[in-house]
Amino acid sequence: MKFFTLTAIAGLLLASAVSVSADEKEVNLYSARKENLIKPLLEKFTTETGVKVNLVTGGADTLLKRLKSEGVNSPADLLITTDAGRLYRAKEAGVIRAVESDVLDKIVPTNLRDPESYWFGLSMRARPIFYVKGKVDPSELSTYEALNDDKWEGRVCIRSSSNIYNQSLVASMIASDGLEKTQEWANGFVKTFAQPPKGGDRDQIKAAAAGICDVAIANTYYYGGMLNSNDEEQIEAANKLAIFWPNQGENDRGVHVNVSGIAMTKAAKNVDNAKLLMEFLVGVEAQAFYAQVNNEYPVREGAESTETLKSWGEFKADELNLSVLGENNSDAVKLMDRAGWK
């Protein structure tokens, strides 16, 4: 019957569309980092080393689930996530392994990697406070904690608590201030929201620029993305705001940072190639790429930065080991739920 013939043809075409060759020199990567933010690097890696990289992108949690259920037979050699919390989960789930590499140990600062070398940060992003120039004087700002002051009531824009970046931020506060104090803080902080949380980080910046609020919390690379956008409106909006690095006091912990990071799976079969790729990704060239393409801070000391990043100035980053973000994540979520942070 025509019906089944068509089905069969479609099937065959599909099968041919997927061609993972049994190439000796290859490495398989599960990446929560979007394809366009990693593919150029992978291509460069292939040109330099001759090792082919096979890629699946997706949400970190779903990739993790896939990794877990595939178990020892998983084809994946490497896992990339865009936050440290998920790497912590992967470690807890027992699907990644420790990697001994002098190169990685030397380049990646200790707080940006797992103490037992299960995972390594590749790029860093900070989550500072943005304020509307002219409406807020930087001197009014000091710390995340101080944002729950009455004077900010109805003036703050921040996205939903279901977002991992907010979860990580609160997780870091739990680590620093303790659960109880952070809860108290959050209870007050939700009163400062100018509107119910919605949209992404860019939307918070846009909302501030449009006059809905005076202060927004967002990741640095989103702000950078707006500044370097092709869209006049986005540039205009971003230019109305400036960065304030919170918690910079002498004894203070510094601005909250997170990383995108990489780990080798327990099931990895192309161990050498995988390690090669890990080391390549902290190399000079790769590190510069993060800054250029996505306005992220390199983890490698002295890697080439960009004008945009430089213009934001130096800052002190929270040196908390990022594993703690993963440990505290559930607590952070529950804490925000209790505070009524939508």
Binding site: A17, V18, N54, L55, G58, T62, R66, P75
Partner: peptide, 11 residues
């Protein structure tokens, strides 16, 4: 969502 999580490499 199903495509994201189930698809083969490079697809």
């Amino acid at each position: 969502p199903a495509t994201l999580i189930l698809r083969p490499f490079n697809f």
